[in-house]
Structures are given as C-alpha cells and as structure tokens.
Nucleic acid binder design. Sequence first.
DNA 1: CAAGTTCTTCTACCTATCGTAGAACATGCA
DNA 2: TGCATGTTCTACGATAGGTAGAAGAACTTG
Lengths: 122, 122
Amino acid sequence: MATLGDLERTVMELLWATPEAMTANELRDAIAEAPLGEVGRELAVTTVLTVLSRLEKKGLVKRERDNRPHRYKSVTSREDHTAELMHEVLVTAPDREAVLARFIGSVSETEAQTLRKLLGGS
Amino acid sequence: MATLGDLERTVMELLWATPEAMTANELRDAIAEAPLGEVGRELAVTTVLTVLSRLEKKGLVKRERDNRPHRYKSVTSREDHTAELMHEVLVTAPDREAVLARFIGSVSETEAQTLRKLLGGS
DNA sequence: CAAGTTCTTCTACCTATCGTAGAACATGCA
DNA sequence: TGCATGTTCTACGATAGGTAGAAGAACTTG
C-alpha cells in the first residue's frame, strides 16, 4: 500500500488543490505559506524535488518534461485516491460483508443518505 | 495511522483467527507452520515477543499478565479494525460524498447488495 | 557564443520503524 | 536451591522518508 509521509502528504494536498500542474518552486512557496497544517516551513527546492521524484516513482505524480521548469501534477484526484485506498483496505479482510456492516455504522447520517442515493434501487 | 509491517500483520492475522488468547510460543509455532503467506518461518520466541510488545504499544493487542506464560489477544476483531481503518482513510478527504461515490463504484455487486440491505429504509 | 542564472540529478546524512535475536533477569517447579 | 521456561533489555541491520549540498544540464541575454 502507498502510505505517505508527512511532507509527501502535504505536497499531494497542494497538488490536489491546484488544477494546473505546478513547478517545484511554486510548491516550495506554497508549502512556506501553507495555511494548511503546521508552521509554514522554509524548505530547499531540492527537498521538494526529491519528494516529487519519490511520488512520481510511486505513481502518484506525473511530470511534464516538455518545457524547462518541469511541471508536476497529481495522477488521480484526491477523491479517487482516497476511494482506492479505502478499497485496498477493505479487501485485506476475508469477511468483507462484516467489515462493511461495521463501516456503515461509523458513517454519519448524511453520508448514509448519500450512500442510499448512490446505491439506488436494486 | 497504524500501518503494520509484514511480521506484525502476520501476528495480527493469527490472533484474529484464534478466539482464545495465545502465548508467544504458540504464536511462534503457528508462524512456523503458517499455511498463510510465505514459507513457514522459524523465528526466535524473543522476536515474537518484541513484535507483540510493539503491537501492544500500538493498542492492537492486549496482554493477560495473570498467569505466567502471558497470553496475548487482539483488542478488536479483524472486521472492526478494518472498518476503522477505512473510516480513518475516508475522513482524510474534505469531500467525503465524492469519495463515497467513487468507492461505491469499486465494490462488487454482492457488496453493493449488502450495503443496500444494511442501509435499510428511510 | 560566453557567462550567469535557473533547474534537475546524484549522492548523502539523519531519524524512525520494523525484523531479528542474544544476554540478562525473573519465576515457578522439582 | 537449582533448573527450565518465560520475559525484558538492548542492539544491530534494513528500509523509508525528511532534508539538502554539489555537480551537471539548459536557458537567457549581452
């Protein structure tokens, strides 16, 4: 499973929140100002680049090598990624029905409503 | 999040599969014969004990210290644990509705059926 | 085209986690 | 009281991830 470290997660957060592909420098700045999470950290660009490479190797990020300041963007949307993770977790258990039963019990009423709608009739 | 290593996972598998609490020795033997996963590994009991301690610290395992060969058992059922993990994953995303929508799309028809039943009317 | 600026790649260090287990300590039974 | 059995302490190697410097590639502009 693709478990992410803190910085890796932060970078993905930013990429998911931005429609256009971003350069390493833009990401560094974004992390510095980061209203999200901890204190805005001042990282070296190389640090960001290393993280991006690792994310690329994991298949979470795609890089546009066309123009020089390479631009990076997430391969999947945050929602797809999360849903995929949930599914990965689900299939680790032999008795999925039972897992789903417990899972349903843990979601809010609103979410349950959404699920009913999504599952539609029969 | 509580991500488990391979051995840790194997130990949890065994604990989940066994109703009674087990001793370190019983676990070592079980791992050795392990029809599950890789080749039955011959581990030192201390190895198993170390892993059990770590799992205890993570709150996944409870130890009965009453009698001498301490006995270990999982704190939650495998299903509860898995459902909890799924929920943890779900709440990392801001747009849960969207995540659920994708998630529903990834489950089998049987599972969808189960979900409909579980969500019942209203 | 040459020199500087900018970006990328390589390499490396540090820490935390995990697999693994020996050595030493504790305990209960013969 | 001493052995057998079990537990705790300590430790070492491997991998992942956070962090970044040094060196190399490429673009910019005089």
